[in-house]
Design a protein around this nucleic acid. Sequence first.
DNA 1: GCCAACGTTGGC
DNA 2: GCCAACGTTGGC
Length: 194
Amino acid sequence: MPRPRKRLAGPAGPDKKGPSGKRPKSENPGELSATVELSGSQKTAASNNCGETPSNHWLMKSEPESRLEKGVDVKFGIEDLKAQPKQTACWDGVRNYQARNFLRAMKLEEEAFFYHSNCKEPGIAGIMKVDVQFIRMMKRFIPLAELKTHYQAHKATGGPLKNMALFTRQRLSIQLLTQEEFDFILSLEEKEPS
DNA sequence: GCCAACGTTGGC
DNA sequence: GCCAACGTTGGC
């Protein structure tokens, strides 16, 4: 489970997992340093996304309700992100290979939906930017059930959510969204809950 | 709390 | 490199 944490002020670590060690011991599986956190000021424009390249949009899952995993509470909802210094957190604990590749592919300032998973009401709670910093709450919470309704309709009609990873890659904790998916979900904010 | 989906592990 | 067993994710 991706497990955003309090700021650890780590460098945006290239993760050093060599091919050598097969995998993290089950003893301590978390803490791969696939960190997106950019500590402190982002002085350098270097990795910044200024320029012409269109930026990617993401969806990142986290659990807003308390749950112990090896004695550690993994709770980290959007309110917890807001409560961090600079409203910025370090997104660690991602184990899945593809999710980690996405973490590495992210560029600063790209936007991501903060998705609440494994909880009473799963869905998209807000928006943050890669750094990982809170931007804003959704104007209204967009429940999974509503997204699923659109997904099912779009499968038939060829609408924007027809291939949404949330449904086609069910267990992937970090997902790349198409521009169409991102825009469509944003447009839902303006609508009445369906 | 249950359990389906699905990723990972490890014997062969 | 197959695939059954196992572990995890995450909706319900």
